[in-house]
Amino acid sequence: MVDTLLRPRNFIDGTRPAPRVPAPVIDRRRPDLRTYGPVETDRRRGRGATANPDGRYEPVQRERIDDGWDIDEEIDDLRTEVTIEKPRTIITKNDSPDIGFDRSINPYRGCEHGCVYCFARPSHAYQGLSPGLDFETKLFAKPNAPELLRKELSAPGYEPRMIAMGTNTDPYQPIERHYRITRQVLEVLEEAGHPVGIVTKSALVTRDIDILSRMAERGLAKVALSVTTLDPRLARRMEPRAATPTKRLSAIRQLTEAGIPVSVLVAPLIPAINDHEIESILRAAYASGAREAGYVLLRLPHELKGIVRDWLAENYPDRMKHVLSLVEETRGGKLYDSAFGQRQTGVGPYAWMIGRRFEAAAGRLGFNTERTRLRTDLFRRPAKETGQLALF
């Protein structure tokens, strides 16, 4: 294998592109992942992406090619690495007009679930890492999140509104079992009487039913489960380390029985892959207890276009061109359009048909007759920890 530098994005003298330079031969026992091109199937078993392309901020892109010196040696599999991150703030603000919250908390960067379609993958480029396999193997945890949250909620000018969790990466991904950051954040929110909305595709959320049920009883919590497909084989290909569809439906049932408002998200809808399941997913979710529902059409920002294209080429080569053609049809002739009001649902006849099918099925079943509104009047600013003893 030879790692070759391709398509330089910087210039040596300001006028000419950098020359094409071959890099040293890679040790096959521990091949460099930071190259564009398929990674060995055995090595990435249980992962979603098929490659590890360089991020968009890197000065060069590299591609691995076969130089004929392939040696049959044992190859290590990809292991999850977690780096401790210590941010200065934990509440992220946004002013996007087409989403229903203005603040969120993400206890982790990257996500071990490995969902190939995840729109958050390109955010890993900010860390100098790949949105491909790096996104699901090189993770960042923020164990000081509860401490930061308490500090920010204590600020004199803070005004409570629902905090969303799971908006970028899943707060209940597998490493949460060890770090328990999400649970600690919920403990702070419960103490402060602060509303929270959670989005996840993990059955691990049921671990925190004790906290969530108490908060829900006070009108402070709701949960949305993302159910992409009912086909376990498709789920295994698309989202290899997320909970199975059966476990997600079971989680909906358990949360509902505990008195926690639950909604289902059919997200993302991928044309010609899982869009035929709209009605069946909604029926199964309603039978499990969900009473609100929403959907999101496949989004392909930045590097995600190539990642999904490679995944389609490996898993559905006969459908790849058709799927991408339908995506372009819903995005004004492009693979992605980030315009507010359109990025979630798309445009054009195909997107319109998806929307009408969803509305009709949800209406027949009785979804969305009422919307859960969380309370903010119970908020009590946490006491600051000054280290001083009380006078009385």
Rank of each mutant, 00 (worst) to 15 (best):
R43K: 11
D3C: 14
E191V: 08
A284F: 12
G294F: 02
L204E: 07
E303R: 14
M238K: 06
I75M: 05
D231G: 10
R79K: 08
F140D: 02
V262C: 05
R183I: 08
N368A: 03
P59G: 08
G294C: 14
P317N: 04
R357V: 02
L148G: 09
V25N: 04
D66H: 13
R207D: 15
R214F: 15
A290E: 04
T35V: 12
A362S: 08
T372K: 02
G48V: 07
E159T: 15
P97R: 09
R121C: 04
E217M: 12
E190H: 15
A242Q: 01
R16I: 06
Y286L: 04
P245G: 03
A313H: 12
N274W: 04
E63F: 13
A203D: 14
P122W: 03
R253D: 08
L129V: 08
D310A: 15
S123Y: 03
P59N: 07
I278L: 08
A362L: 08
A145W: 15
A164T: 04
V262G: 00
S130L: 06
A18L: 11
T228K: 08
G332N: 03
E191P: 10
K305N: 04
Y350H: 06
Q344F: 08
E191L: 14
P349V: 02
I273P: 00
E74M: 00
S104Y: 11
L374M: 09
E239D: 13
Y179K: 01
L389V: 14
S123H: 03
G157C: 05
A284D: 10
P261C: 11
L220H: 10
T50S: 08
Q184K: 11
D95C: 10
H276S: 12
P382C: 07
N106Y: 01
E136N: 09
G346I: 00
P317A: 07
Y57W: 13
I163P: 11
N144G: 14
A164F: 09
R56T: 03
P156F: 12
K334P: 00
M1W: 12
N168Q: 12
R180G: 01
E85R: 11
R56G: 09
G346S: 04
V82C: 09
P245V: 04
I105H: 00
P17S: 05
R9F: 13
D208C: 14
E85G: 14
V188S: 03
M320C: 12
F119Q: 07
N10P: 01
K247S: 09
T229M: 02
E385Q: 12
Q388I: 15
A125K: 00
I278C: 02
R109F: 15
R43Y: 04
L300F: 06
Y172L: 11
T35Q: 09
H178P: 00
P301K: 09
P131Q: 10
P122S: 07
D134K: 01
P143M: 11
I84W: 06
